[in-house]
Design a protein around this nucleic acid. Sequence first.
DNA 1: ACGTGAACCTGCCGGC
DNA 2: TGCCGGCAGGTTCACG
Length: 270
Amino acid sequence: MPELPEVETTRRKLEPLLLGRTIVRIEHDAPDKYRDTHRAHGRVVRDLTRRGKYILARLQDPDGHEDDAELIVHLGMTGGFRYEPGPHTRVTLHTDEGAIYYQDARKFGKWAVVDPGAYASMPTLAGMGPEPLGDDFAVDAFVRAAATCGPVKPWLLSQVPVAGVGNIYADESLWRARIHPAQRRLTLDEATRLHAAIREVMAEAVQAGGSTLSDGTYAQPDGLSGLFQQQHNAYARDGEPCARCGTTITKSVLAQRGTHHCPACQVRRD
DNA sequence: ACGTGAACCTGCCGGC
DNA sequence: TGCCGGCAGGTTCACG
């Protein structure tokens, strides 16, 4: 389900429910996937932030007798929060003002409560690149790194050059920047275009509340759908005409991921 | 130090 | 109708 726009939308919906609330109990039956959640019990949620596709909550001990802790939530492919329990509810988060339910059909999502900033058990989070919508996402550093990169789509998916780009938004950004998904070693122009495209696509997708695909797995906690799928130009548009040139969008497999591009606008060099 | 591929899971959809 | 293969928004680890 969730790339940066979906996770950010989820975070915004969760924030008013959790900020300042005491976590009474986190209930589940998979301690390997939802680790050390007992450490959250009795702690107060002081802030709710996001890094890439991870939701982070700073948890403060109200008595000050113990150090703060940090709750990390990654939604995997199909994770999401709901106001009501359902057939795929995996975790129930009880606060002093009610409960919220985490559902995850495929169970790829993970939770952990750790010491603040202790991300060793989540290597992708530990090595996360800059936020695409933040000031730290510098075009010159991106251009320099892109000049020696391997196939550009898998490179983006690694979360190292920039945080939060997944399969949908990689395809959409590469379409917008007119770059072939398997292109290596981007030129100055290509990397500059891609940097801008990532920022634009992410900003527009956040604005639209993310993308809800045809299976409807991703929705906001109140059940509302995102709307950005209506603006997709590449992802799941195979067989349809390119909005820019009319050529049929094709689908292929790259790094084990379904990949959509326009064979006329996105031509691979050498 | 890469890049690739399998593994982790369940559900849904299309084809036969 | 029913079974089966293929595919799905991600991360991690084991290889070569």
